[in-house]
């Protein structure tokens, strides 16, 4: 027994090393579990405020760009207004709203890691919940991972574990959009069967088959594609419409009917 104690004291720095590495590994692999929720509510508020100050400053440098995108977006919305249509029969008896949009500002964002996250300046107090989708005018940003009272952290589309159901606009062929980690401007579209006709420049949109994103949000366009021998699916590379390094304002999507959809799904799966 004495020998063991002497051994430990003699090699105390080595044991400290092992201990600290174990703690780190524990954090790495438990990132999704309980202490995460504790961590998010206590620490995120502090980190959130620091990021907010920093983004308040850097926001000034992007004002011009932001104004331009907002103006473009306004023009698009104006063209959708009631008086822009010759015949307006939108107010049918079956007309019902499904998606609500909540605007938010990005206060921290990375694009240079393999797994990227963003932080937004709105949280639980603004009605944001876990698993809501986040989009911008010309692209999908990600999915809300955690919320605290005033902030929410979002898994970026530039993340190894996020896969989004996407479709080719012209023929509605469904595939899965992923990020391969090479460049933040490009991604890959998988599971498009080889019998489908595609060409460079085809637009990729969200499919609307998940409960998170509505159909038809533009994501990117095909930059190149090839067929590997013996495979049934294309290898498609796409270019995102959005420069994820430059966005500053986003919309969080609240799917009002999500609960109903999920209930129905579980019901039919259980039978």
């Amino acid at each position: 027994m004495k020998n063991i104690i002497v051994f430990i004291i003699k090699n105390k720095s080595f044991f400290l090393f092992i201990l600290l590495e174990t703690i780190s590994l524990f954090f790495v692999f438990n990132n999704n579990y309980y202490q995460k929720s504790y961590y998010i509510s206590s620490t995120n508020n502090i980190t959130g405020y620091i990021y907010k100050i920093s983004s308040n400053i850097s926001g000034y440098f992007q004002l011009k760009q932001t104004n331009k995108t907002l103006a473009r977006e306004n023009a698009k919305l104006l063209s959708l207004k009631k008086n822009s249509f010759l015949i307006n029969n939108k107010y049918d008896s079956i007309y019902k709203q499904q998606y609500l949009y909540i605007p938010a500002r990005i206060i921290s964002n990375t694009t240079n890691k393999r797994n990227n996250y963003l932080m937004l300046n709105k949280g639980r107090n603004s009605g944001i919940k876990k698993d809501m989708g986040v989009v911008c005018q010309n692209g999908v940003i990600g999915i809300v991972k955690d919320v605290s009272d005033n902030f929410s952290s979002v898994i970026s589309i530039l993340h190894s574990k996020l896969k989004i159901s996407a479709a080719i606009k012209k023929n509605n062929q469904i595939g899965t959009l992923e990020w391969d980690g090479k460049n933040y401007r490009t991604g890959v579209l998988n599971y498009i069967p080889t019998h489908v006709n595609i060409s460079v420049g085809d637009t990729i949109i969200t499919s609307g088959y998940s409960f998170i994103f509505p159909k038809g949000i533009p994501i990117g366009k095909i930059s190149k594609f090839k067929i590997k021998k013996g495979k049934n699916f294309y290898d498609i590379d796409i270019i995102f419409f959005t420069d994820y390094n430059k966005i500053s304002y986003v919309y969080i999507i609240n799917n009002i009917l999500k609960k109903e959809q999920l209930d129905l799904q579980t019901k039919s799966q259980n039978e």
Binding site: L20, F27, V28, N31, K36, T43, T110
Partner: peptide, 30 residues
Amino acid sequence: KWLLLISGFLLGFGIDIFSNTLGLNAFATV
């Protein structure tokens, strides 16, 4: 040595808290 290890851990952990990569930087710096 112990102070080196501890300060390495704290440094990495500090970075981790801000970049949503809990434990990753801490492991490398330790």
